Simulated scan of single mutants.
Amino acid sequence: MSGGTSPVAGVRTVGFIGLGTMGDPMVTNIASSGAFERVLVHDVDVERAAALAARIGAEAAADITHLSACEVVVLMLPTSAIVRAVLVDDDGAPRIPSPRGTVYVDMSSSDPTETVETGRLLAAAGLHLVDAPVSGARERAIAGTLAIMMGADDEDAAGRAVPVVDTMSARIFRTGGLGTGHAMKALNNFVAAAAYTASTEALTAGARFGLDPAVMVDIFNASTGQSFVTTHVLPDHIVDGRFASGFALPLMTKDVRIAQKVQRATGHDAPVCDAVAGALGDALDALGNVDHTRAYEFWNER
C-alpha cells in the first residue's frame, strides 16, 4: 500500500490492542507502511507497549480510552471473552468512548457466536465490529503476508478496515457476515491440528517400527501425506527437537474446541474433531501452557 493517508476509507489514526507474539509484528507492519498519520498501541503490559511504540514510531496509549482518537482499532487477543471484556462493560456499554462509526477489527481467534453478540452490543452504540482472524504464524506476521478471513455485516465498515488489514496481509478472503471469519479460522485450525495429531502419531509408530523420523518427513513431503505440518512443523520443531513454533498448546486446543462448537451448531456429528479435541485436551491437562509441538512428547510417552 502506498504512503500517505487513505482518502477512500478516511482512516488516519489506527489503534492496536494486544502486543504479543503476533500483535507485535502485525502492528509493526501497520506503522512501517506509512499509510496512516498516527498509530496508537495498547497492552496490559504498559512497559511492553511503551517499548514497542518507541521502536516503531507509534504512540503508547497507557489508558485504553485514549484509543477513542482512532477511526479503526485492531484487536489481537487470546480469546473472544477477553475481546468482549475490553470493548464492552458488564452492562454492554462500550468501554472506549469512540465516536459513532468507529470500526473495531477483531483479528483474534475468537468464538464466532461471541463475536456476533459483541457486534450486536457495539452496533447499539453506533459502532462496528469486523472479524478478520489470521493464518500464517509469526513468520508470516513478520513478513506482512498473513492470510485473512474477513466477516462483516456492514460493507462501509469492511471498506475502512481493509486498508489497515492490507498492511499485514498477502490476501484477504471475504467470508460473509460477522462471525464467519472466526468460524472459518476455527475450522482451518482444526484441519491443521488434525494433520498435526495424525502426523505425529505416525512418527511415533514409525520410529517404534524402526523408521527414521527424518526420512519419514521427507517421504511425507514427496507423497500424499504432505501438509503445512509436514513441511514446516515436523522438520523444524519435532525432528530437530526445537519445539518452538510460537503457537501455544492452549490456543490450539481452544481453536479446535471452537470448531467443535461450530460443527455442533450445524447439527451433525464430528468424530474426527472430537478425537482431535480430546487428544489435545489430554496433552494440555498434562503439560499446561507450552508450545503446541510439545504435545508430541506427551503422546509419544503415553
Rank of each mutant, 00 (worst) to 15 (best):
M76P: 00
T200I: 14
T175G: 02
V41K: 04
M76Y: 00
E201I: 02
D153P: 04
V215F: 08
A35D: 08
I238L: 04
V88E: 03
Y196T: 03
R208C: 05
R55D: 11
L287I: 00
S32T: 15
A50V: 14
Y296L: 04
L178M: 13
A186I: 03
T145R: 10
P78I: 04
V215L: 10
V272C: 01
V105K: 04
S109R: 06
D153Y: 08
A53D: 00
E301C: 11
V233Q: 03
S227A: 11
A69S: 07
Q226G: 03
A259P: 10
I96N: 11
M1Q: 07
G136T: 11
L187E: 02
A286H: 08
N289C: 12
D240Y: 07
E71T: 08
D240M: 12
G34A: 00
A207V: 15
R95S: 13
A170G: 15
D106I: 05
S33V: 03
T175L: 13
T115S: 14
R174H: 15
G176D: 10
A194C: 10
F298M: 01
P97M: 07
D156F: 09
A143C: 10
F16W: 09
M184R: 02
V262L: 01
V256Q: 04
V86D: 10
G10E: 12
I17G: 02
A69M: 02
A259Q: 09
D154Y: 06
T115F: 09
S110G: 15
L129F: 07
T230K: 01
D131H: 15
H268A: 05
G126P: 05
A275R: 07
E59D: 11
A49T: 09
A62I: 10
A125S: 15
N221P: 08
T145P: 03
G181M: 13
F220L: 03
R264I: 02
D218Y: 01
A157G: 11
D274W: 01
G151I: 12
G267E: 03
A158F: 06
E59C: 02
G34Q: 05
A157P: 09
G159M: 09
E139L: 07
M150Q: 11
A265H: 10
G241T: 12
L280Q: 00
A9Y: 08
S80W: 13
T79C: 14
G206N: 02
V41F: 06
S169G: 07
L19G: 06
I64E: 06
A123E: 08
A50W: 07
I172N: 05
V290Y: 03
T102N: 07
D43A: 11
A286L: 02
A157N: 13
V239E: 05
S227F: 14
L280H: 07
T21D: 01
T293I: 06
P78M: 14
V191D: 02
G225Y: 12
L127Y: 01
A143M: 07
A61F: 06
A194L: 01
A61W: 03
